[in-house]
């Protein structure tokens, strides 16, 4: 592929992505709305991702406690471990790791599902039967993403703190009371806001990228494989990039 062809393809991809966003906004604000599909997606994306989020959250909290214990010992401040864990977890690791896990599980799943519907002409069949695929397939997933990813993040933060507490008490020899006291001291209301605003946007990004990539699939089963990989790669990179931009923005506006 020549350089200009590559640029053209990239610009087209971005244009199509923003067109999809426009269609989503229209789908969210006008009828028909497919309530049954929305409920199904809340279940599939939210409840379905629970196990993986619980596991990642717990282990992240545990390793965070271990590592910060070692670092804080250098300053003789082992008792502050709760502060470090809560601030890092709520502001950064909770939202980002949850988003990355959801990208791997949900973003890839959406791309594969919509992609195979695309190559088997089910998307065309939907249109031929008078249904707008964006309203029927994309809007419910987007709603589930922007509602469930923040909830999953809060859960990940919660279990992460519990994991950190277990490690702090059993491995670092700090008492539970000191730990929880320090956890609360480390958190400001702005941190909580940051921890809730981020996953809202990250959920939106993950799902819309999965849908966009899925709906642009072509080239049979091979194409579906490619779409799935692209959704995960593009999704993960965008999650990290958007997280950086949001952090900068929120730090400027709220702190």
């Amino acid at each position: 592929m020549t350089f200009t062809a590559g640029v053209k393809k990239g610009v087209l991809e971005v244009q199509e992505y923003f067109r999809l966003l426009g269609q989503i906004v229209r789908g969210l604000t006008s009828r028909p709305i497919y309530f049954r599909d929305i409920i199904e997606q809340f279940d599939a994306i939210g409840i379905g991702s629970m196990t993986v989020v619980l596991l990642t959250g717990t282990f992240t909290g545990m390793v965070l406690a271990l590592q910060s214990g070692v670092t804080l010992d250098q300053f003789g401040a082992r008792s502050m471990v709760g502060r470090l864990v809560s601030a890092t977890m709520v502001k950064e690791l909770g939202p980002v790791l949850t988003a990355l896990m959801v990208t791997g599980r949900v973003g890839s799943g959406i791309a594969a599902e919509l992609g195979s519907m695309m190559v088997t002409e089910q998307i065309s069949a939907l249109r031929a039967l008078g249904t707008d695929p964006v309203r029927k397939l994309v809007v419910p997933r987007v709603l589930a993403g922007i509602v469930m990813v923040p909830i999953l993040t809060v859960i990940a933060n919660g279990v992460g703190m519990v994991g950190a507490w277990i490690i702090t008490v059993t491995q670092l020899g700090v008492s539970g009371g000191v730990f929880w006291n320090s956890v609360v001291q480390g958190l400001y209301i702005q941190d909580v806001w940051m921890g809730l605003i981020k996953p809202f946007f990250l959920g939106f990004v993950i799902v819309t990228i999965g849908c966009h990539v899925g709906l642009r699939t072509s080239g049979g089963t091979q194409g579906v494989g490619r779409a799935t990989t692209n959704a995960v790669v593009a999704g993960s990179v965008t999650v990290l990039a958007v997280d950086f931009l949001l952090t900068k923005l929120i730090l400027t506006l709220l702190y």
Partner: peptide, 29 residues
């Protein structure tokens, strides 16, 4: 499109729906 019926190559049935839901799709939705 209401006046048109299309039989896609390989059928293009919705594989998450039963035969009943597929066939009745247009009337249900």
């Amino acid at each position: 499109r209401d006046r048109l019926g299309m039989v896609f190559q390989e059928g293009a049935l919705f594989d998450s729906l039963t035969v009943r839901e597929n066939v009745g799709y247009k009337l249900f939705e």
